[in-house]
Design a protein around this nucleic acid. Sequence first.
DNA 1: TGGTTTGAAAAAATCGATTTTACGGAAATT
DNA 2: AATTTCCGTAAAATCGATTTTTTCAAACCA
Lengths: 220, 220
Amino acid sequence: MSEEFVQKEANSNAGRVFAALREDLLNGQYQAGEKLAIASLRDNYQVGLSPLREALSRLAAVGLLEQEAQRGFRVPKLCREELQDIVDLRVELEGMAISRALRYGDSTWESEVLAAGHRLKRADGEGVPLADWEHLHTQFHAVLLSSCQSAWMLKFIRQLHEQFDRYRRQAPRNLAMRKVLNAQHEDLVTLALARNEVEIRQLLERHIRLSHEVALPSCS
Amino acid sequence: MSEEFVQKEANSNAGRVFAALREDLLNGQYQAGEKLAIASLRDNYQVGLSPLREALSRLAAVGLLEQEAQRGFRVPKLCREELQDIVDLRVELEGMAISRALRYGDSTWESEVLAAGHRLKRADGEGVPLADWEHLHTQFHAVLLSSCQSAWMLKFIRQLHEQFDRYRRQAPRNLAMRKVLNAQHEDLVTLALARNEVEIRQLLERHIRLSHEVALPSCS
DNA sequence: TGGTTTGAAAAAATCGATTTTACGGAAATT
DNA sequence: AATTTCCGTAAAATCGATTTTTTCAAACCA
């Protein structure tokens, strides 16, 4: 997770409970479709109602929760059609972003891509907690596109990744595909440093669509 | 404005103050860069601190406000680079959306496009409040893309329109360009009903980039 | 019996008071 | 004279109590 992000959320109860709830939602700690009992959240996360409700409002605003007036908050359901929507948009937006990232990326970006790829590969083994790998994986994809010079594109892509992770982390482990996906991460680094736009776009699309296959079983 | 939207926001103080603040922010009631005094907002909008802070949190989550921990909320500045970013993304996303809208739109969609175009044209005259025209204009563009079958694309486009309006509504009136833009709305209806994908994509891009010209003076 | 009304319990939303933190100028130190 | 420290004011953030709304089951009526 990026330092600014931690910094930004760490100084207030509202920020802390937002980050904690977000993490738990992405990890499937709450059932899809489940209604959140505000009173028990208050106890579990050790905060008052005001910061808690602020966090819930923010999560609803970015689509990690649904809010019905006077009826509280609930976890959105998972459905095939939405997953397909998310994947197709990811392909389009990340395709645009990677092209621009290759165009604008400087040598600092190159070394960050290399470093993020290395950290991700190193964490692939057995002895590393899954949560750590997830963070490094998220960060790898973020760094890869970070030099695209479009703040709004990055914002939307980040939001789509969050949504996608809700699906992927619910799906059963698939070791064979995981192996292929990990190999693709290494190839992405190589193609990025080589500034091979055509091939990296193709590979990125294959990568996203393969992730889709992995995530698909999470829908009902 | 769509019925669901009104319905959704109208039942709670948090929802009402969110809608009201959003409207005022889009209309430039608050200076770009200005820090919002929460206490006076409480008086102006006649609500307590809890629903007010929920509304502010939501607005920050969608980028209509910036939040610094322990330092309250402030209105984001307007800058050329961000406007360019927003416009380029609008061209890409709305281009994708209009193609899909033509593909999936049925006869109900056709009549909605026709109706929205008619209402917009009728409100073009002198005797109609600007706020009404703005709503009809927003709705026209929303209806045009509504049949694209991608909820996330529509969500992002809506967000970009909000941001873009912050700029456009600050810019001085430009009657000549306004006339051209209004004519384009009529052509968009014609091309949509004719399902002319190539030409409507070109026109939509011209329309967006011309709006950009109109909005540009709002920066600095 | 099927459907509607009612009322108590539960949950959500809101409020006003309290606590915590940032801000800005004056005093003090180097 | 410039920088740092201190302290009072103002603002933001949080809390717990209160109000409002929903829920659901039992009672009631047709």
